[in-house]
């Protein structure tokens, strides 16, 4: 009886959270970027407009996924504890009061990689399946 219950729970879990959605989400930068690693708090603060310069003086510029992307929702919910909408409300507060500019919005993960390699200090987030040699991983979102 107990084994049946566990099996049912596992099946429900798989239906609700298919393995594809549980893949790692990667915070990346351009392959020639001087950035090497960030911690979760730094990534969070960068994408909420609280941090634009790292302790070593390096400038850092966030790049967002498109507004409709589920990846964007997952990233903000996991890393910042805000929904993408709440994070955008915070950026509205900063950008209309002269205290920051919101992240540049890309059109896709491929576009994120192109922007990262043409913008010094830029960081973005992509699915694990989009990782290639044009970018390097600086934080892994579990």
């Amino acid at each position: 009886m107990r084994q049946n219950l566990l099996l049912r729970c596992a099946l429900i879990g798989l239906l609700l959270f298919p393995p594809g959605l549980l893949a790692d989400l990667l915070v990346v930068t351009g392959e020639k970027s001087a950035l090497t690693a960030l911690d979760k708090n730094q990534v969070r603060n960068i994408f909420l407009g609280k941090l634009s310069v790292l302790p070593d003086g390096k400038n850092v510029i966030p790049i967002d996924q498109p507004e409709s992307s589920p990846l964007r929702d997952e990233f903000y919910a996991t890393v910042t504890n805000y929904s993408a909408a709440e994070a955008n409300a915070r950026w509205a507060e900063l950008s209309f009061t002269g205290r920051g500019m919101p992240p540049r919005v890309s059109t896709s993960s491929s576009d994120v990689k192109i922007i990262l390699n043409s913008t010094p200090g830029a960081i973005g987030y992509i699915e694990e399946s989009e990782l290639d040699s044009s970018v390097k991983v600086i934080f892994t979102v579990k």
């Binding site: 409300a89 915070r90 509205a92 507060e93 209309f96 009061t97 002269g98 205290r99």
Partner: peptide
């Protein structure tokens, strides 16, 4: 340095008081 006309930051949301989405 910012020079010109701005909202007076009296309260937490004063500077973004016209931007309804921000509060």
């Amino acid at each position: 340095l910012q020079v010109g006309r701005k909202r007076l930051p009296l309260f937490y949301y004063s500077e973004s008081q016209d931007v309804g989405l921000s509060y």
